[in-house]
């Protein structure tokens, strides 16, 4: 049952023409001619990309398509060779990642980065921004930060409760299972109260039961007004949760559209399976595989 925010976002995207670089009615993130080369290899070469506010946008594509590199560029974890991009209307091109995070554009990582030898609660509390006690001078004067710390702890416990991790709050994060760490990383990102949350393969290595719960969390996050953009290989998830799908191949955006339109797009099928996947490999037209009849 889609919520109000979801319905509004889907309605807004319904009128957008499904083509690469399509203009959205209300974009939170706009990127122009972003490119990144590693030696002779062009990892990312995106002409134009917009992300609709309060939507759930999936970024898909075969391995090596440049999805994670694009994520790294947009979030300041790598420097682009060319291009400029704006977030909430202001240019954030090549802005350091920590500044972007403070502005509410928060990312998670493909390989979960839980801080092993910190407790789960400390992991969460670390996520809060604007902490007075994080300035070295104020750190030794607890009366400056104690009140704020209490509020942060309450916020953290509420989120842990929501993510079913409250019972683990005193454990070291390194003692959590892989799936729990994914949950923790997502919960920790929410401590920053993001406007745009960018999830790099949130479902990698997660069992089916937990997947469902992660999906629900992603829907909830969006229902609070946060824009979600994620990289994912799990097509069921993409179809299930996203309003809009952006497909990358060889560094370029090759298709965009609603999940339904993208899955039937010839360019997408070609990118995943090869342009000649439905043609026989021999000149005579005989199939190489026994009984093949493509």
């Amino acid at each position: 049952m889609p919520g109000e925010v979801a319905a509004a976002a889907q309605a807004a995207l319904a009128v957008v023409s499904p083509e690469p670089g399509a203009t959205k009615p209300d974009s939170i993130l706009v990127a122009d001619s972003v490119s990144r080369h590693f030696g002779g290899l062009t990892a990312v070469d995106v002409a134009h990309l917009e992300v609709q506010r309060s939507s759930i946008t999936a970024l898909i594509g075969p391995n090596g398509a440049g999805k994670s590199t694009l994520f790294n560029l947009l979030t300041g974890f790598d420097n682009a060779d060319t291009g400029n991009w704006t977030y909430e209307g202001a240019s954030v091109t090549n802005m350091p990642s920590y500044k972007l995070a403070r502005k509410g554009m928060v990312r998670t990582f493909q390989l979960t980065k839980s801080l092993s030898r910190l407790t789960v609660l400390d992991n969460m509390r670390l996520g809060a921004t604007g902490q007075k006690g994080e300035r070295m001078g104020a750190a030794i004067l607890p009366f400056i930060w104690r009140g704020q710390e209490k509020a942060i702890t309450e916020q953290a416990m509420a989120l842990l409760e929501r993510f079913n991790l409250a019972a683990k709050s005193a454990d070291f994060a390194g003692a959590l299972s892989g799936g729990q760490r994914k949950l923790l990383e997502m919960a920790r990102a929410l401590m920053l109260k993001p406007n745009l949350i960018m999830l790099d393969e949130p479902m990698a290595g997660v069992n089916p039961a937990l997947k469902q719960s992660l999906l629900d969390h992603i829907r909830d996050i969006r229902e609070e007004g946060t824009t979600v953009m994620f990289v994912e290989h799990d097509m069921d998830m993409v179809r299930d949760v996203s309003d809009w799908v952006v497909v990358m191949a060889q560094g370029k955006v090759i298709a965009e559209g609603t999940p339904r339109s993208v899955m039937g797009n010839q360019a997408v099928i070609d990118a995943y399976l090869g342009a000649h996947h439905d043609r026989n490999l021999t000149a005579s037209g005989e199939s190489l595989t026994q009984g093949g009849n493509s």
């Binding site: 979030t75 995070a101 980065k113 030898r117 670390l126 007075k132 750190a139 030794i140």
Partner: peptide, 26 residues
Amino acid sequence: ALMRSPWGRSLRGIREDEDAVLALGK
């Protein structure tokens, strides 16, 4: 006094994984 403060917590976070702490706006 320093290490029990949020400043000390962010240092320990950096020890564990600097990129994660960067992504949290520090």
